[in-house]
């Protein structure tokens, strides 16, 4: 009788010990199935999550600012509208950028526009169209257009279009 009880106690204790160790492992090492951010269970040791979408992939971190999304951003500082342009500027994106910029120009009554090309890796003549269009809108009120963080390719495109007389390229 005592032996059987001892056995049972020993088994129960062993069970508890196993469970305790398991929970400790899960807490420390993340062993075992845990749901990924998309709510699907996967072995947590495998990065990256296979359900990650191509366009959401974490891009390599270059500067702090890269952590933000890659769309255009607008900021109004004093009398200046700062536009941080996206990584690719083509006709498809330029429609949106121009519309948003015009809304800011009209509602916030900004006098000058600054185009920030820091994130821009590609631009075609639609980008020239954005710059020219905003220039036409603000120049009659004496506003000026600036370009900052211009790399050699963007500079080449601006010079090719003859925009160096209209846009001031800041170093």
């Amino acid at each position: 009788m005592n032996e059987r009880m001892n056995e049972r106690i020993y088994d129960e204790q062993r069970e508890l010990r196993t469970q305790g160790v398991l929970s400790l492992l899960i807490h420390v090492e993340g062993v075992g199935n845990q749901p990924c951010v998309h709510g699907v269970r996967k072995p947590s040791r495998q990065p990256p999550c296979v359900h990650e979408r191509m366009n959401e992939r974490q891009k390599p971190i270059k500067t702090e600012r890269s952590l933000h999304n890659m769309d255009e951003e607008f900021k109004v500082i004093d009398n200046y509208l700062m536009i941080r342009l996206p990584d690719e500027i083509d006709h498809h994106k330029s429609v949106d950028i121009s519309a948003k910029a015009d809304r800011y120009i009209v509602s916030k009554k900004v006098g000058n526009v600054v185009f920030d090309f820091e994130r821009t890796t590609f631009m075609d003549s639609s980008g020239i169209g954005i710059i020219l269009g905003r220039y036409k809108k603000i120049s009659c009120f004496g506003g000026r257009v600036y370009a900052v963080n211009v790399d050699s390719r963007i500079r080449r495109i601006l010079l090719l279009s003859g925009l160096q007389n209209i846009v001031e390229i800041m170093e």
Partner: peptide
Amino acid sequence: ELDRSGMGFAFMEA
């Protein structure tokens, strides 16, 4: 009116 710069062909040629 579409904010076109008129530089499309010029870019292609360049």
